Simulated scan of single mutants.
Amino acid sequence: MAPAAGTAQGSNGIAEPKVAGVGCPSVPAIQRAGGPNALPAGTGLDVSTPVTGLKACRYKMSDGTLLGQQVFDATVAQQVVDAIKVLPERNPALPVFKCAPQTAKPAEAIVLRFDTADGVREIWVEYDGCMSPGFFTGTHTYGLYAAPLKLFMTGEVRPSGSTYLNALQGW
Protein backbone atom coordinates (compact mmCIF):
# COMPACT_ATOMS: atom_id res chain seq x y z
CA MET A 1 0.00 0.00 0.00
CA ALA A 2 1.29 3.46 -0.82
CA PRO A 3 2.14 5.93 1.94
CA ALA A 4 -0.36 8.65 2.77
CA ALA A 5 -0.28 11.92 0.91
CA GLY A 6 2.24 14.35 2.30
CA THR A 7 4.73 11.63 3.17
CA ALA A 8 7.64 9.96 1.46
CA GLN A 9 8.30 6.26 1.94
CA GLY A 10 11.39 5.68 4.07
CA SER A 11 13.24 2.52 4.98
CA ASN A 12 11.62 -0.07 7.27
CA GLY A 13 8.08 1.10 6.52
CA ILE A 14 8.49 4.47 8.17
CA ALA A 15 6.57 7.16 6.34
CA GLU A 16 8.73 10.22 6.64
CA PRO A 17 6.74 13.45 7.03
CA LYS A 18 7.51 16.33 4.68
CA VAL A 19 6.41 18.85 7.30
CA ALA A 20 6.86 19.10 11.06
CA GLY A 21 4.05 17.94 13.31
CA VAL A 22 3.09 14.43 12.33
CA GLY A 23 -0.24 14.28 14.11
CA CYS A 24 0.61 14.03 17.80
CA PRO A 25 -1.68 16.26 19.88
CA SER A 26 0.12 18.90 21.92
CA VAL A 27 -2.19 18.15 24.87
CA PRO A 28 -2.67 14.37 24.82
CA ALA A 29 -5.77 12.68 26.22
CA ILE A 30 -3.48 10.23 28.03
CA GLN A 31 -2.12 13.08 30.16
CA ARG A 32 -5.61 14.27 31.10
CA ALA A 33 -7.01 10.77 31.78
CA GLY A 34 -7.20 9.15 35.18
CA GLY A 35 -4.30 6.90 34.20
CA PRO A 36 -2.52 5.46 31.19
CA ASN A 37 -5.06 2.64 31.03
CA ALA A 38 -8.16 4.91 31.16
CA LEU A 39 -8.89 5.65 27.50
CA PRO A 40 -11.93 7.86 26.99
CA ALA A 41 -14.93 5.97 25.58
CA GLY A 42 -14.90 5.66 21.81
CA THR A 43 -11.21 6.44 21.30
CA GLY A 44 -9.65 2.99 21.73
CA LEU A 45 -8.81 0.69 18.83
CA ASP A 46 -10.70 -2.57 18.34
CA VAL A 47 -7.78 -4.77 17.24
CA SER A 48 -9.96 -6.48 14.60
CA THR A 49 -10.28 -3.13 12.75
CA PRO A 50 -8.09 -2.69 9.65
CA VAL A 51 -5.63 0.20 10.02
CA THR A 52 -4.10 2.38 7.30
CA GLY A 53 -1.40 4.26 9.20
CA LEU A 54 0.18 4.88 12.58
CA LYS A 55 1.53 7.87 14.46
CA ALA A 56 3.51 6.92 17.58
CA CYS A 57 3.69 9.72 20.17
CA ARG A 58 5.90 9.50 23.29
CA TYR A 59 4.89 11.82 26.13
CA LYS A 60 6.21 12.95 29.50
CA MET A 61 3.27 12.20 31.78
CA SER A 62 3.79 14.95 34.37
CA ASP A 63 3.08 17.80 31.95
CA GLY A 64 2.19 16.22 28.58
CA THR A 65 5.41 17.28 26.86
CA LEU A 66 5.84 15.52 23.52
CA LEU A 67 9.19 13.71 23.75
CA GLY A 68 9.15 12.08 20.33
CA GLN A 69 6.99 11.16 17.38
CA GLN A 70 7.20 8.88 14.37
CA VAL A 71 4.88 8.12 11.44
CA PHE A 72 4.52 4.59 10.02
CA ASP A 73 2.83 3.32 6.87
CA ALA A 74 -0.16 0.95 6.66
CA THR A 75 2.01 -2.18 6.53
CA VAL A 76 3.85 -1.42 9.76
CA ALA A 77 0.66 -0.16 11.41
CA GLN A 78 -1.08 -3.46 10.69
CA GLN A 79 1.98 -5.43 11.87
CA VAL A 80 1.83 -3.56 15.20
CA VAL A 81 -1.87 -4.38 15.65
CA ASP A 82 -1.33 -8.01 14.64
CA ALA A 83 1.57 -8.33 17.12
CA ILE A 84 -0.53 -6.86 19.95
CA LYS A 85 -3.78 -8.76 19.43
CA VAL A 86 -2.20 -12.18 20.03
CA LEU A 87 -0.69 -11.21 23.40
CA PRO A 88 -2.01 -12.44 26.74
CA GLU A 89 -3.39 -9.97 29.27
CA ARG A 90 -0.19 -9.98 31.32
CA ASN A 91 3.48 -10.81 30.75
CA PRO A 92 4.38 -13.15 33.65
CA ALA A 93 8.11 -12.61 32.99
CA LEU A 94 7.90 -8.97 34.12
CA PRO A 95 8.43 -8.07 37.80
CA VAL A 96 5.51 -7.21 40.06
CA PHE A 97 6.01 -4.18 42.29
CA LYS A 98 4.33 -2.98 45.44
CA CYS A 99 4.39 0.79 45.46
CA ALA A 100 2.63 3.81 46.86
CA PRO A 101 0.05 5.45 44.54
CA GLN A 102 2.21 8.54 44.06
CA THR A 103 5.09 6.42 42.73
CA ALA A 104 2.90 4.11 40.66
CA LYS A 105 2.35 6.67 37.93
CA PRO A 106 4.59 6.40 34.88
CA ALA A 107 7.02 9.17 33.95
CA GLU A 108 6.44 8.42 30.25
CA ALA A 109 3.95 6.64 28.01
CA ILE A 110 3.36 6.19 24.29
CA VAL A 111 0.13 6.83 22.44
CA LEU A 112 -0.29 4.81 19.25
CA ARG A 113 -2.69 6.74 16.97
CA PHE A 114 -4.02 4.46 14.23
CA ASP A 115 -5.76 5.72 11.10
CA THR A 116 -8.95 3.72 10.42
CA ALA A 117 -12.03 4.09 8.21
CA ASP A 118 -13.81 5.48 11.30
CA GLY A 119 -11.11 8.04 12.12
CA VAL A 120 -8.18 7.95 14.54
CA ARG A 121 -8.26 5.24 17.21
CA GLU A 122 -5.66 4.82 19.95
CA ILE A 123 -3.79 2.21 21.94
CA TRP A 124 -1.94 3.50 24.99
CA VAL A 125 1.36 1.88 25.96
CA GLU A 126 2.60 1.93 29.54
CA TYR A 127 6.15 0.75 30.15
CA ASP A 128 7.18 2.90 33.11
CA GLY A 129 6.10 3.41 36.72
CA CYS A 130 5.45 0.37 38.87
CA MET A 131 1.97 -0.87 37.94
CA SER A 132 0.07 -2.11 34.89
CA PRO A 133 2.58 -2.35 32.04
CA GLY A 134 0.99 -3.12 28.71
CA PHE A 135 -1.11 -2.08 25.76
CA PHE A 136 -4.51 -0.58 26.57
CA THR A 137 -7.24 -0.43 23.91
CA GLY A 138 -10.06 0.94 26.02
CA THR A 139 -11.79 -2.42 26.19
CA HIS A 140 -8.88 -4.82 26.65
CA THR A 141 -5.43 -4.98 28.21
CA TYR A 142 -2.56 -6.79 26.51
CA GLY A 143 0.70 -7.57 28.29
CA LEU A 144 3.92 -5.73 27.53
CA TYR A 145 6.10 -7.80 25.18
CA ALA A 146 9.07 -6.96 22.97
CA ALA A 147 7.65 -8.05 19.56
CA PRO A 148 5.27 -5.10 19.04
CA LEU A 149 7.61 -2.63 20.79
CA LYS A 150 10.39 -3.31 18.28
CA LEU A 151 8.08 -2.25 15.45
CA PHE A 152 7.37 1.30 16.68
CA MET A 153 9.97 2.15 19.35
CA THR A 154 12.35 3.74 16.87
CA GLY A 155 13.97 7.15 16.56
CA GLU A 156 12.52 9.76 18.94
CA VAL A 157 9.87 7.31 20.14
CA ARG A 158 12.46 4.92 21.59
CA PRO A 159 13.04 5.56 25.31
CA SER A 160 16.45 4.82 26.76
CA GLY A 161 14.90 2.51 29.32
CA SER A 162 12.29 2.34 32.05
CA THR A 163 11.06 0.26 34.93
CA TYR A 164 9.64 -2.48 32.72
CA LEU A 165 11.74 -2.03 29.59
CA ASN A 166 14.86 -2.67 31.66
CA ALA A 167 13.38 -6.05 32.67
CA LEU A 168 12.05 -6.89 29.19
CA GLN A 169 14.44 -8.80 26.95
CA GLY A 170 14.78 -8.01 23.25
CA TRP A 171 12.95 -4.72 22.82
Rank of each mutant, 00 (worst) to 15 (best):
D73Y: 00
D46S: 08
T163W: 01
Q102H: 04
V19L: 11
G64F: 05
G42P: 02
P36N: 10
D46T: 05
R113W: 07
G119R: 03
T137L: 12
V51F: 03
P50D: 10
I110M: 05
R58T: 12
L144R: 01
P28A: 03
T139L: 00
P36A: 08
K18M: 11
Y142R: 02
C24A: 10
G13W: 02
Q102L: 10
A29T: 09
R121T: 05
L151G: 06
L168D: 04
L149D: 01
Q31S: 07
N12H: 13
G138A: 09
A146C: 03
A74E: 11
T52D: 14
T7P: 01
Q78A: 08
V76E: 12
P50W: 04
P28Y: 02
V51T: 14
R113T: 03
D73H: 01
A74G: 04
T7I: 08
A100F: 04
A29L: 12
Q9A: 15
P28L: 03
F135C: 02
K60V: 07
L168M: 04
C57S: 11
A74S: 14
A33P: 13
K105Q: 09
F152R: 09
P92D: 06
K150Q: 13
T75N: 15
P95L: 04
P92H: 00
T141V: 15
V71I: 09
A15N: 15
K60W: 04
R113E: 15
G13L: 12
P106L: 09
Y145W: 06
R113D: 15
D82C: 07
D115S: 14
V111P: 14
